[in-house]
């Protein structure tokens, strides 16, 4: 090979290797940083203000950071319910909000207000079911959420009063801060007995939970 070609080829190779190596080092450093932050904030994972389902002394605590307007959360919800049903009494599900969409804050506030009437899960399931209508990306219609409320059997006047309660906004804000500190960057994000689900997927979630149950 001629000298000039050799120099250029070697430079290209060196630059690419350097790039990949630096990228790898950077990502490694970042993930270590995230892990440290997560460990420091582990106690903030399971807050008493959060809605939860299942016995308090369940073997597995599954914390889900989610957004009522997020499509993947909607798609994943039946799987979570199935895992809960298959392992009845073994799992306690804790819901926390990570709100990324335009109307998710309204939806979360309505959910919290419906919780005061003891209808959190019904409302969540209803919101998920009709999410393609109220939460469509091209034509979001948040006003539809209000129309759903009486159909779920909620006292809308009471709910409007409860929405003024500053605790609702405070809890949603706490969830946002905690999610950020715990490294939640996407929804849904799952934590199984404090450990984050590293690789996202139904099968992965299922086996991670089963492993904790068998422990």
């Amino acid at each position: 090979m001629r000298k000039d070609k050799l120099i250029v080829t070697a430079s290209v190779a060196a630059l690419i290797i350097g790039f990949v190596l630096l990228a790898w080092m950077y990502q490694d450093k970042q993930s270590k940083k995230l892990e440290t932050a997560r460990l420091q904030n582990e106690s903030n994972l399971d807050r008493s203000h959060s809605p939860s389902l299942g016995p308090a002394n369940a073997k597995v605590t599954l914390v889900e950071f989610m957004d009522p307007e997020c499509e993947s959360c909607r798609a994943f919800y039946p799987f979570v319910k199935k895992i809960m049903a298959d392992n009845e009494g073994q799992i306690r599900l804790v819901i926390r909000y990570t709100l990324f969409h335009g109307n998710s804050e309204l939806a979360a506030s309505l959910l919290e207000a419906s919780r005061l009437q003891g209808k959190f899960w019904q409302t969540l399931e209803y919101f998920f079911e009709y999410q393609p209508q109220w939460g469509s990306h091209h034509n979001p219609r948040p006003e539809l959420l209000w129309e759903y409320l009486p159909k779920i059997g909620l006292d809308v006047d009471q709910l409007k009063k409860d929405l003024q309660n500053p605790v609702i906004a405070k809890n949603i804000a706490t969830d946002a801060v905690d999610g950020n500190l715990l490294g939640v960057r996407q929804t849904p994000s799952f934590f199984i007995n404090g450990k984050p689900l590293k690789e996202f997927g139904y099968q992965q979630l299922k086996s991670a939970i089963e492993m904790e149950i068998q422990k």
């Binding site: 000039d4 120099i7 290209v12 630059l15 350097g18 790039f19 990228a23």
Partner: peptide, 27 residues
């Protein structure tokens, strides 16, 4: 003279990869 262009190219390569590093790796 060849080296003058070679080093220009090298600087352009480093700048290109560097900017991609900032946007793609460091987001």
């Amino acid at each position: 003279s060849w080296y003058l262009i070679f080093f220009s190219w090298l600087v352009a390569m480093i700048a290109t990869l560097g900017s991609l590093f900032f946007s793609e790796v460091m987001s």
